[in-house]
Computed example of a mutant assay.
Amino acid sequence: MPIEGDRRSDETVLGALYEQQAHRLQAFLTGILRDPELAREAVQSTFRKALESAGNVRPESLKAWLFQVAYNEALALRRRQGIEAKSLRRLSWIHRSDPPGAEEQMILEESFERVRAALQKLPQEQARVVRLRIEQDWTFARIAEELDVPLGTVLTRMRLALQKLRKQLEAPE
């Protein structure tokens, strides 16, 4: 690695490293995440972190460091996905074979109304992502394409929306 603090040299080295390793990282992360779009996001995140702190890594360790960062990014993405999926399950309709009784139906309708009211309080961008994900059952990649924003932006909007919804729905009426 070039002289510490020489950002232009770091960028040149990282550019070359990207050319050499990006496709390997993509394949590695696709194997972990089972989703090429998420793998691309993790590769971008990895190189963003490399740009920020690779100057502190010994040149002979750079490749191993890069793969370790990529692995950690993949795990973080999977964790976020799990949390979001769990939250979506909580918000979604529970399918059952027997219809609910009158009292249970009233409780469900009241719950749905609380969710609708909470959704209306969300910023428009976040509410749109939630609606496309839940009502249209679109993937996050498709939502990103439709809204013409990066996948990471869509995932962040969803995460923030779910946090706000959870807080609103857990609050006493």
Rank of each mutant, 00 (worst) to 15 (best):
K63I: 09
E41T: 06
Y71F: 15
G152E: 06
V13T: 07
R58T: 04
I143H: 00
L151E: 00
R128N: 10
I32Y: 09
D6M: 10
P123F: 10
T156D: 10
R157V: 10
H23G: 09
A50W: 03
L155Q: 12
P172E: 05
M158R: 03
N72I: 09
R131D: 09
Q168N: 02
E41G: 06
V57T: 02
I94S: 08
M1I: 14
R8Q: 15
L14W: 03
L14P: 01
L162G: 06
Q26F: 11
V43S: 07
Q126E: 13
R78V: 11
S45K: 14
L169W: 01
L14T: 04
S45Y: 08
W65D: 03
E103K: 07
R114L: 02
M106Q: 10
Y71K: 15
L75N: 11
W93N: 09
S92D: 10
E52V: 04
A118T: 03
R142S: 05
T12V: 13
K121F: 00
R96I: 04
H95S: 12
K49L: 15
L88S: 09
V130H: 08
R96N: 02
E173T: 08
L169K: 00
E125C: 07
K164R: 12
I83R: 13
A117S: 10
P59G: 00
S61L: 03
A70F: 15
E109P: 10
A70I: 11
L132M: 15
V13S: 04
I143G: 01
I3S: 10
E173W: 13
L147R: 00
E19F: 04
A39D: 05
E73N: 09
E104L: 04
Q68E: 14
P36W: 05
T153H: 03
R133W: 15
E60L: 01
T139H: 13
H23R: 10
Q124V: 14
V13N: 03
P36D: 12
P59S: 02
Y18I: 01
P123N: 05
I83G: 06
R58N: 04
E125S: 11
Q44K: 11
E60M: 00
A64V: 04
L29E: 06
R48D: 07
E103A: 05
F28E: 09
P100R: 14
V69R: 12
E145T: 00
A118G: 01
V69F: 13
E109D: 12
A64R: 05
A42Q: 08
W65I: 03
F140W: 07
K121G: 03
A74K: 13
Q26G: 11
L77R: 14
P123D: 11
A39E: 05
V154F: 00
V57S: 02
G15L: 01
N56T: 15
A102H: 07
E145L: 04
R114I: 03
E41K: 06
R40F: 09
D10K: 07
V130W: 10
E145I: 02
Q163C: 07
